[in-house]
């Protein structure tokens, strides 16, 4: 089932620790039955939505390692990316076991095509670091800060409610993730204030960063039919319910930073379809090519 099993069979796991080993029972001790009356395909899709948000956000944050404005920030962003990766592994594991087709976290992360990913566009857009040349406003650390602020404020409001999910696995993952996301949101909020309330240049770039991410905000609060059905069953959270709480948090940060919340921008869709339906922006193909390349080129590779 795990593509790395062949390489680790008969091994106690001592030699490898990075991934693909020793994490076979991440959901032990939790009731893993699908709650009665809940559609397995819906629950699979929902776990993928949440898992893909975390996985894609983690992948892009990790790209900042060695590129952040100071060493402490390299370490901070790497730590935040690691938390998100951990959340993604648990959620993808849940998606795979509910789906029941034998796909584990690695198969779901590395062997799906772009249209099978269900993350929101906010997670995938290019906010830097620039791969070539100097960073530009909207593709720099301030834009990544803006994305992290919006993403973690939204995710924290969502997961705080998901702690009461009728699915015991989602509830347990959320209870753990809430503590981590609280640190992520505070970190992004303090940077937003530091840049927004800093020099003219830092203010300009922070504002450009917020403008960069703002067209992708409405999608966060638009319920997909899977979310609506599972919210009615007590499993999921209807994202529309989160808007006022998240707006309140962002307004508090923006006020301290001397910034204004931009006017809402309607969600850009393709015939009504967006990230939750597997319709993605241009950035997604590049991101997946980089993320999946190693696993596809060298199946079963371990560190």
């Amino acid at each position: 089932m795990n593509v790395y099993d062949g390489l680790t069979a008969g091994d106690s796991g001592d030699a490898h620790w990075a991934f693909g080993t020793g994490f076979t029972e991440p959901l032990a001790g939790i009731d893993r039955d699908v709650p009665s009356g809940v559609d397995r395909a819906d629950l699979t899709a929902y776990a993928l939505m949440l898992g893909d948000d975390a996985l894609v956000a983690s992948q892009l944050l990790a790209a900042w390692t060695s590129r952040a404005p100071e060493l402490e920030e390299d370490v901070a962003l790497a730590n935040i990316a690691l938390d998100l990766l951990g959340q993604a592994r648990l959620l993808l594991t849940r998606a795979g076991e509910v789906e029941g087709r034998g796909r584990d976290e690695d198969a779901l992360a590395h062997l799906r095509a772009e249209h099978e990913f269900r993350n929101v566009h906010l997670a995938e857009i290019d906010c830097g670091p620039s791969r070539m040349g100097p960073s530009a406003p909207g593709r720099d650390f301030a834009a990544t800060t803006a994305r992290l602020l919006v993403f973690s404020s939204w995710k924290l409001a969502l997961f705080a409610r998901l702690r009461d999910s009728a699915d015991p696995v989602l509830a347990a993952v959320a209870a753990k993730a809430v503590k981590e996301l609280t640190y992520h949101r505070d970190h992004a909020a303090r940077w937003t204030v530091r840049l927004g309330d800093g020099t003219d240049e830092s203010h300009r770039r922070m504002r450009a960063g917020i403008e960069r991410v703002w067209p992708f905000v409405d999608e966060l609060f638009t319920a997909h039919p899977v979310e609506t059905r599972l919210a009615a069953a007590g499993v999921a959270v209807d994202p529309a319910e989160l808007r006022s709480e998240v707006d309140g948090v962002l307004d508090e940060v923006f006020a301290a930073a001397g910034l204004e919340r931009p006017a809402p921008v309607p969600v850009a869709t393709v015939a009504g379809r967006a990230g939750r339906d597997g319709v993605h922006t241009e950035a997604m193909g590049f991101l997946l090519a980089e993320m999946q390349h190693l696993h596809r080129s060298l199946p079963g590779a371990v560190w």
Binding site: S12, G13, D14, H16, W17, A18, T21, G22, F23, A28, G29, L82, D83, L84, L85, G86, Q87, R89, L90, V173, K176, A177, E180
Partner: peptide, 25 residues
């Protein structure tokens, strides 16, 4: 043996499992 991770993504969790297996063996 049942252990719990400190953080969701704590990479040390696998090392802990290996150390526990080694000590008990």
């Amino acid at each position: 043996v049942t252990i719990t991770p400190t953080y969701s993504g704590c990479p040390a969790i696998d090392e802990m499992g290996a150390d526990l297996r080694r000590a008990l063996t």
